[in-house]
Design a protein around this nucleic acid. Sequence first.
DNA 1: TTAGGGTTAG
Length: 667
Amino acid sequence: METPVLGFEARCPHNLFTTNSRPSSLPASTVSVRSLTTTTTTTTTVAKSPETVVVTQHPRTKPHSKSFLTRKSAISEIEQSPNFLSSLHRLARVLKVQDLNVILRDFGISGRWHDLIQLFDWMQQHGKVSDSSYSSCIKFVGAKSVSKALEIYQSIPDESTKTNVYICNSILSCLVKNGKLDSCIKLFDQMKRDGLKPDVVTYNTLLAGFIKVKNGFSKAMELVGELPHNGIKMDGVMYGTVLAICASNGRCEEAESFIQQMKDEGHSPNLYHYSSLLNSYSWKGDYKKADELMTEMKSVGLVPNKVMMTTLLKVYIKGGLFERSRELLSELESAGYAENEMPYCMLMDGLSKTGKLEEAMTIFDDMKVKGVKSDGYANSIMIAALCRSKRFEEAKQLARDSETTYEKCDLVMLNTMLCAYCRAGDMESVMRMMKKMDEQAVSPDYNTFHILIKYFIKEKLHLLAYQTLLDMHSKGHRLEEELCSSLIYHLSKIRSHSEAFSVYNMLRYSKRTICKELHEKILHTLIHGKLLKEAYVVVKDNAKVISQPTLKRFGKAFMVEGNINLVNDVLKVLHGSGHKIDQVQFEIAISRYISQPDKKELLLQLLQWMPGQGYVVDSSTRNHILKQSHLFGRQLIAEILSKHHIVSRTMVKSRSEPKFSRGQRSK
DNA sequence: TTAGGGTTAG
């Protein structure tokens, strides 16, 4: 009785109960869900495709088995029940795992997230899960919560299930879609170690993660390089992904060669493949190649769509072909492809960035006259354009208009307006924008901080600028040297030396190399602020790039007021850097030691160190030491000073030798 | 039986 149904199920490659998907190669009308799940009389009416031929080749004795119909109705009952769990309890006995999967997917598609989780829990508790339960569940759960999806993946008890390629692809895709590319790659490597045999879908999933990532191109190519090793051939989908990666990285030559490769392998590029290639030409504005591409595409019967035409416009604009751009824009208008502001925005931006502000403004006005729908991008572009031309009052006015016209602003718009207000010196509006960002819970980005700090410096609110920089740093944004340097300068001027030093340190430890003048600059600030211990740190790390006069100034300052316990270390560091220590510095250091006899050891160390490096005490210092030698041990002092004496004599001799050779002297 | 991609603006 059940055989025909099972036979049918076994032959049909797709789930009987699937309500959402069908074989992607088939048009919607051929094998509809309705036709498969109602009675056999309808199957004959749709017997047009190979699949339905299969059906008719195995005629059933009965329309559907009782069990089939029971399961079918149980599924819809649970799906439609306001309290699905109670229906589930009641009907559980008749349902197979694949039936539960159908319900699971139905919940996923209709966004019944909590029901989905509840159902899956129930399935796990009752041991009614299959590989496809995991892959579907992870897919739907992952769209809302990556951590929950990971939790489900980790909960898989069986190691071999954990490396099931469908399940792996599902969780990897979920990570990619949530921008967690690094964790995705890590997990992928782990999966491979655990026995995953990645397939074309796996690789494509990973590759998709590189599309909008900076420097994603080379990493993507590494992955592509792994394909032959795993016996995987690229398919049309993967070519699409790879071309998008090329396009978003401006790699037009590579894009061309991938297109060629796919053609050679018998794939026909579609509109998307060509669009990516076209987009790759926009980087350099290569309109010649773009035109050729359009011709080729049309010759194979593809009709450019709105996006493609807009991308072509982008190429023309980048290539500086403004007349042709205007013509193309008219074409877009007549084709009904310019009903929103995007093509206008591109043209306005291109014009203004090449100094054609007036022409950009004409487009802007035109757009308004034509009643083109705008979400505020056009305004934002013009505000930026006006700022670029230093027409701050007009920029400010337009920003005000935007604020009243458009309720919703994204971060870039907010930044543009903020910038206009800052440049126009409108403090009240600046504060209003900051408040707005706060209220809308928009977190400031690098640009926001940069704009504000520059503005606060201009308004001489240096400590506020400093606080903002701290905030910026704590949020993990990179700091720009020029801005930091300027802030260091201003903080020093208002005698906020330690704040200046903290800016220096933030920059120093977040950047591999910084301009050498900055070390010198901060050193002057620290000396001036008497932060000598900090100054010593700077010298210790950077003595080789600091000028001799500055080192001298530091040395002297430290000898006079630096921590006495560090005096010898400082002298050694200065000497070690190649700096010739001034006699005055020794004099000061030694007098300090003499005035503090408890530092006797340090004095002796210094005096013993000096001759070995070619330094000797001068006569007044020598006399000073001798007068107090009872404090330090007369005998020892006498011995050390005699060494100084010997060295000083050889020094005098060697200094005089090159100048007066024997021969010269005898003349 | 479950998994993948792709084009445009500031």
